[in-house]
Design a protein around this nucleic acid. Structure first.
Length: 823
RNA sequence: GGGGAAGUGGCGGAACGGUAGACGCAGCCGCCUCAAAAGCGGCCGGGGUAACCCCUCGUGCGGGUUCAAAUCCCGCCUUCCCCA
């Protein structure tokens, strides 16, 4: 037997050589058709495990397949290097965030190379480099120039653990998405990006993203939450103030029996002039009690509660007086901060009215229902026919919505309007390890942007990072600056940006990562954008992917990128890797690391296992038994092919063969090639089936080796296999290829072209059914005509007896597969 | 509560209206070996049959469409994911 395959030294050898030869650098200008494949850039947390490996192996296999299929492939990698963990390390262990991040990146680069990935390392970026975040600041100033960045005081989600504000998207079930601490509410001056002005386009263009999972598009649609309705005002009795409300159910307007406003609603200040002092104090106390509550608590967990203000508003159409209530479930940030309460036709309002003894006035009845219905036991929320609604009575809900909107508009108190669930993106963070916001506050000039030529505003070293408050605010040398307009003293903004800002445009920086004059060049964008295949976890289905789409549309509007205004043509979400049925985590102690797996099983085996165990989008389970199957495959591949590397064989021309086993082997080669190419071109990426075909190929080699050891088909297969496995097991492929006498990389070769005439069987098994039940399997030459097949079947004694002497009434023929006789 | 996805041997999965269980793992038998490991060969959904051919049941449950359903449709159950 040949020497056992020494995967450790072979894998090391090729990893070193690929690095030395810059084997996977991208041409600056593609000459063949371009293909941009991208995995979501990782946060440099320190160590990679096989869960990460699944993601990068898939991207790598796609990149290598596409390269072998004749494309100029761009496959870059970088680091989402700002963020809280680095700062937490500083707080807990006194390590400088930059040092911590750098050493993590160094380790993870080593691990990515250890995984055999073929990235273009000349394009590596780290978002914490001034080289990179300088352009973050530059882009922020462009948003500001175009009115898409603004500053205001707002109640925000505050994580008491991380001491920072969070975007709504970063609050999951009322908890911080990173540390799971219960989120509180606070008021702070914050920078926002006006993503809402792109809401309609972000929504509409989802329809065009056919290469995206439907699930993800649905999630984004729900997140944007567009609803059409009417915005109109209630006058407040006794004072010169109005309360605006938005409703999608204008048809229920005559059923409004109260007005619910948010505890933070600005009209409350004006109301105080018409209500008793004691009541005003109660309202303040009520608002106070809510300010620390998270949105989730207020909208879902807490009981619906409220307080009558003592003020009344006037319904603009019915002219009825309705009481104004402050409530805990209407949010100031959502819509207008006030809603008309219609207990009869809204579940939440119904509960609220029951609890506080407010009248329930039914104004919609089911079509065909009585005009004077019995009292409701629950809200009737469906559309119907209007009753007790003045001259709108009798109309259908749909018609009434239009008619009432028109009346409100005619009276000058309302108009049709569109409301979104999506809110503007809060980007300020009271943290150190992020991009400083390039704004100065001058006593004379006010808010002043840092001029472009003064960028980047550098993050100062040696910040006092203690976990309390903002480190930059405590650094006078950073805070104190000179106003670029008047030369007077100015104070810097001490907040840094949400890290989703960096990751919203990094795919463009890869195009010219070292350009000192621009974030990227339009020319490069024209060459390489859009990203043809984006690969990453579904946990980014809303935040990152929505922000990146927003940025790209803004860039497109500026003319900084051309073509389609969507950045990612196709998107693929890979599934998790579990171990012992649970997500891998340090605390559970069930992490399978890259280093230990590479040492124990080999990288090729690991890659094959991750691709083989399940389709890539499914959750897979890491098992020692499972990986051992792929370790066996690698050794078997070596044992079968290595001895044949010295035999002459032309991979591109199959040899002439006679025997059935020989034909079967040639066929297995071409079936495997067909599978790999189909899975790639269909973008299904179910390489698990391709690897199963490679198993069958090795089985066919074993069989032929036993029956016809001198067959030229064996050397042919042995020379084709390195090409076939190259995208999945790149090291052993390269080693076998070299041993076959080749001096250039197997990864730059064209993928084997499957030949349908070799795949076609000359003898097939024709399944004969009678009334849909299998009654015979007949061996026959392929390409039988329908009448030949029928004749053959009717000649078969077993089929004849199944027919029970009856003549088939009808038959159905699937060529080379099946004949169904119906009697 | 609403929306979405999924349910196939002991396990992971294959089969995108046409032979259910490819391929792998585990298990069992054999060869090799002093022995073991590795390797190689074979068996491997349930029932019927001494046995082969064969018959029959079988893709969460119940219906339906079709010559033909794991696949399409309707209802239910379970699990997971999003949203409330």
């Amino acid at each position: 037997m040949a020497d056992a395959y020494d995967f450790r030294s072979v894998e090391r050898k090729w990893q070193e050589r690929w690095l030395r030869d810059r084997a996977f650098d991208t041409p600056a200008v593609p000459t063949r058709e371009k293909y941009y494949v991208l995995e979501m850039l990782p946060y440099p947390s320190g160590d990679l495990h096989v869960g990460h490996a699944k993601n990068y192996t898939l991207g790598d296999a796609i990149a290598r397949m596409m390269r072998m299929l004749g494309y100029d492939v761009l496959h870059p990698m970088g680091w989402d290097a700002f963020g809280l963990p680095a700062e937490n390390a500083a707080i807990q262990r006194g390590i400088d965030p930059a040092t911590w991040t750098r050493s993590n990146i160094a380790n993870m680069v080593r691990q990515l190379r250890l995984m055999g990935t073929g990235y273009d390392w000349s394009r590596e970026i780290a978002t914490c480099d001034p080289e990179y975040y300088r352009w973050n600041q530059w882009l922020f100033l462009r948003f500001l120039e175009h009115g898409l960045a603004y500053r205001r005081e707002a109640p925000v989600n505050w994580c008491p653990h991380d001491q920072t504000v969070l975007a709504n998207e970063q609050v999951i079930d009322g908890r911080c998405w990173r540390c799971e601490t219960l989120v509180e509410r606070r008021n702070l001056e914050q920078w926002f990006l006006k993503i809402t002005s792109y809401a309609d386009r972000l929504l509409a263009d989802l329809d065009r993203l056919e290469g995206w999972p439907e699930r993800t598009r649905t999630m984004q649609r729900n997140w944007i939450g567009r609803s059409e309705g009417v915005e109109f005002s209630f006058a407040v009795e006794g004072i010169d103030a109005k309360i605006d409300v938005f409703t999608t159910r204008a048809d229920t307007l005559f059923g409004s029996t109260f007005l619910a406003i948010a505890a933070e609603h600005p009209v409350i200040a004006a109301l105080k002039s018409v209500i008793a002092k004691k009541r005003a104090a109660e309202i303040d106390a009520f608002a106070e009690s809510l300010c620390s509550k998270s949105e989730l608590e207020r909208t879902s967990l807490m009981e619906k509660n409220g307080l009558f203000t003592g003020a009344y508003a006037i319904n603009p159409l019915s002219h009825e007086r309705v009481p104004v209530w402050v409530t805990n479930y209407v949010l100031a940030e959502y819509g207008t901060g006030a809603v008309m309460g219609v207990p009869a036709h809204d579940e939440r309002d119904f509960d609220f009215a029951k609890k506080h003894g407010l009248p329930i006035a039914q104004v919609i009845v089911p079509h065909g229902g009585p005009d004077a219905p019995p009292p409701l036991v629950e809200a009737f929320v469906e559309d119907g026919r209007l009753i007790a609604s003045d001259d709108f009575t009798g109309m259908s809900s749909a018609r009434a919505r239009d008619a009432i909107a028109e009346r409100l508009a005619a009276l000058g108190v309302g108009r049709k309007s569109v409301n979104y669930r999506l809110r503007d993106w809060l980007i300020s963070r009271q943290r150190y390890w992020g991009t400083p916001i390039p704004i100065l506050f001058c006593e004379a000039c006010g808010e002043v942007p840092v001029p472009d030529e003064q960028l980047p505003v550098l993050l100062p070293p040696n910040a006092p990072i203690t976990g309390e408050g903002s480190p930059l605010a405590r650094m006078p040398e950073f805070v104190n600056a000179t106003c670029p307009r008047c030369g007077g003293p100015a104070r810097r903004d001490t907040d840094t940006m949400d890290t989703f800002f960096e990751s919203s445009w990094y795919y463009l920086r890869y195009l010219s990562p070292h350009d000192a004059n621009a974030a990227w060049e339009r020319e490069d964008a024209d060459r390489w954008m859009n990203v043809d295949q984006y690969v990453g976890g579904s946990e980014h289905a809303v935040m990152h992917l929505l922000y990146a789409r927003f940025f790209y549309k803004f860039f497109h509007d500026r003319g900084w990128v051309g073509g389609d205004d969507e950045p990612f043509a196709r998107l693929f979400h890979q599934g998790f890797v579990l171990h012992d049925g649970e997500k891998m985590s340090k605390s559970r102690g069930n992490v399978i690391g890259i280093d230990e797996t590479a040492e124990k099983n080999g990288v090729d085996a690991m890659r094959l296992f991750l691709l083989y165990v399940t389709p890539p989008e499914d959750t897979s389970d890491w098992t020692d038994e499972g990986i051992s199957g792929r370790v066996r495959f690698v050794h078997r591949l070596w044992r079968l092919c290595e001895p044949l590397t010295r035999a002459a064989a032309d991979v591109r021309t199959p040899p002439e063969v006679n025997g059935g086993d020989e034909r079967a082997l040639l066929r297995a080669v071409h079936v495997a090639a067909r599978s790999a190419i189909d899975e790639t071109r269909s973008r299904r990426f179910h390489f698990n089936t391709t690897i199963a075909k490679l198993d069958e190929l090795l089985n066919a080699m074993s069989a032929l080796l036993r029956s016809t050891p001198e067959s030229p088909a064996l050397a042919y297969a042995a020379h084709a296999l390195p090409l076939l496995v190259a995208p999945f097991a790149p090291h052993i492929a390269e080693e076998l290829w070299e041993r076959s006498g080749h001096t250039t990389s197997v990864h730059l070769e064209p993928y084997p072209e499957p030949d349908d005439s070799i795949i076609a069987l000359d003898e097939i098994v024709l399944v004969v059914q009678v009334n849909g039940k299998i009654r015979g399997r007949l061996t026959a030459p392929s390409g039988l005509s329908e009448s030949e097949a029928l004749a053959l079947a009717l000649a078969d004694p077993h089929v004849r007896s199944s027919l029970d002497a009856k003549e088939p009434r009808k038959h159905f023929y699937v060529p080379d597969k099946l004949l169904n006789l119906v009697v």
